[in-house]
């Protein structure tokens, strides 16, 4: 029992170290890599442009629900004028970076893990290695660098669409004065909140894309599964781990950046 626990702990520590080296190499290998710009643009398209519809849909419904719930709660205290404050701070500080990251994990992260897993399975990664190419520079670096750009933009889109959703349910459906709503938004959000949103988005992007890339890249090392099963197991693991890490990192960053009264 104790032996198994020790072995499991050693395995986790070993994997964490391996993951840290993998991520570091993902950045350092980018130096001097040819046609990196073209691959970054493609990665931005895959993580960014393709995921905009899902971000918009989830963002608008999140705003609509926040507006609806917030209006009825605040109305009990006669404070519905603060709806803009509630919606904007909830979105900017928490929901936009977290939900945008979770949506990106579900769409772009899972696709990345599966793609790299299949490339590993079909020896495409081995082929890159035998030709002397840096697999990290070719496969990982563009995705990591693209994530640093894409995640903050997606979080910003989520915020704007969410605010619009709050406006639609609060002002258009429930007759709160639009001026009151937007003035509260304007007053509530300060640059530090926006900075917190972007810091979270960048950290989540870095963590989730490297977790998904790591799992796909190492699909052949999964114990107990090979071939297509290894790819599906790696993809599932990538999505589950990324989602957990996003929530854990959110708590950590919030506790570091939270404004004390």
């Amino acid at each position: 029992m104790l032996r198994a626990l020790g072995q499991h702990t050693l395995h986790i520590v070993d994997e964490l170290g391996d993951f840290a080296v993998f991520t570091t190499r993902g950045f350092t290998a980018a130096i001097g890599s040819r046609k990196l710009g073209r691959r970054i643009v493609r990665a931005i398209y895959e993580q960014g442009v393709r995921c905009v519809p899902v971000i918009v849909i989830v963002g608008i419904f999140t705003g609509l629900v926040l507006g609806l719930q917030g209006y009825y709660v605040l109305n009990k205290f006669g404070s519905e004028g603060l709806l803009g404050t509630l919606v904007s701070l909830t979105l900017v500080r928490e929901l936009a970076p977290v939900l945008a990251a979770l949506m990106l994990v579900g769409q772009a992260g899972s696709a990345l893990a599966a793609e790299l897993g299949i490339q590993r399975n079909s020896e495409q990664i081995d082929a890159l290695e035998t030709m002397g190419a840096s697999t990290h520079a070719y496969l990982v670096s563009p995705r990591l660098l693209a994530a640093l750009v894409v995640f903050p933009i997606q979080a910003a889109i989520f915020c704007l669409v969410g605010l619009l959703g709050g406006y639609l349910s609060g002002s258009v459906l429930l007759n709160l004065q639009p001026g009151v709503y937007w003035a509260a938004v304007y007053k509530a959000v300060d640059p530090q909140d926006v900075a917190e949103c972007f810091i979270k988005a960048v950290v989540f992007g870095l963590l989730t894309i490297s977790i998904c890339a790591y799992n796909g890249y190492n699909a052949h090392r999964r114990r107990g599964s090979t071939g297509a099963r290894a790819v599906s197991a790696s993809t599932t693991r990538a999505v589950v781990f990324s989602s957990i890490v996003v929530l854990a990192a959110d708590y950590l960053i919030t506790s570091l950046l939270v404004k004390h009264p």
């Binding site: 079909s122 020896e123 081995d126 890159l128 035998t130 030709m131 190419a133």
Partner: peptide, 28 residues
């Protein structure tokens, strides 16, 4: 100085024929 021809060819399926052939020169 060495090349390897895989049993299953290991061609990069997201690249065209020309891009596959150019890849080793481009990356190394």
């Amino acid at each position: 100085r060495c090349s390897y021809l895989f049993q299953g060819n290991a061609l990069l399926d997201s690249l065209t024929v020309l891009e596959n052939v150019a890849l080793p020169l481009e990356q190394t």
